[in-house]
C-alpha cells in the first residue's frame, strides 16, 4: 500500500461506480447521475495531481513561496462547465422522451421501439 496513490485509487473506485450506474441502471435520470459521478471523479483526478505538498492556492501573495499547480485547475474549470452543459441538454432530452414515451425507463423505451418497427 502506497499512501501517495490513495487519492487516485479512490478516484478510480468512484469513476467505476459511476460507470456501473450508467451501464446497469435503466432509469435515464439515474444514468445521468452516474455520468455526473464519472465526470466529477475525473476532475478529482486532475485536481489531485495538481496538489503540491505544503503548497497554497495559486493566487500570488507576499509571504507564500510554494503554490499548487494552477494548470489542472484551469482545465477542470472548463471540464465542469462542459459537464453541466451536457447535463442540461441531456435533461431536456429526458423531458422530451417522457413526453414521447410516457416513461423514463430505458428498458421500457427500448421495448416500445421494438414494437414500432
Amino acid at each position: 500500500m502506497d499512501p501517495g496513490l490513495y487519492n487516485y485509487w479512490v478516484v478510480i473506485v468512484l469513476m467505476m461506480s459511476g460507470l456501473y450506474v450508467v451501464i446497469a441502471r435503466s432509469n435515464l435520470v439515474k444514468k445521468l447521475i452516474g455520468l455526473n459521478v464519472f465526470q466529477v471523479s475525473v476532475i478529482m483526478f486532475y485536481i489531485s495531481m495538481g496538489k503540491v505538498d505544503g503548497g497554497t492556492a495559486p493566487i500570488l501573495e507576499d509571504g507564500f513561496e510554494i503554490y499548487s499547480n494552477p494548470v489542472p485547475h484551469v482545465l477542470m474549470l472548463t471540464a465542469i462547465v462542459v459537464g453541466v452543459a451536457t447535463l442540461a441538454l441531456a435533461l431536456a432530452l429526458v423531458v422530451r422522451l417522457y413526453g414521447a414515451y410516457g416513461t423514463i425507463e430505458e428498458d421500457e423505451i427500448a421495448e416500445m421501439d421494438d414494437q414500432d418497427t
Binding site: L19, V22, L32, L35, A90, V94, L97, A100, Y101
Partner: peptide, 14 residues
C-alpha cells in the same frame, strides 16, 4: 430520434 440522441449522448460523454 430522441432516444437515439440520448443514447449517443451517454456513450459520447463516456
Amino acid at each position: 430520434a430522441l432516444h437515439a440522441a440520448f443514447q449517443y449522448l451517454v456513450m459520447g460523454t463516456l
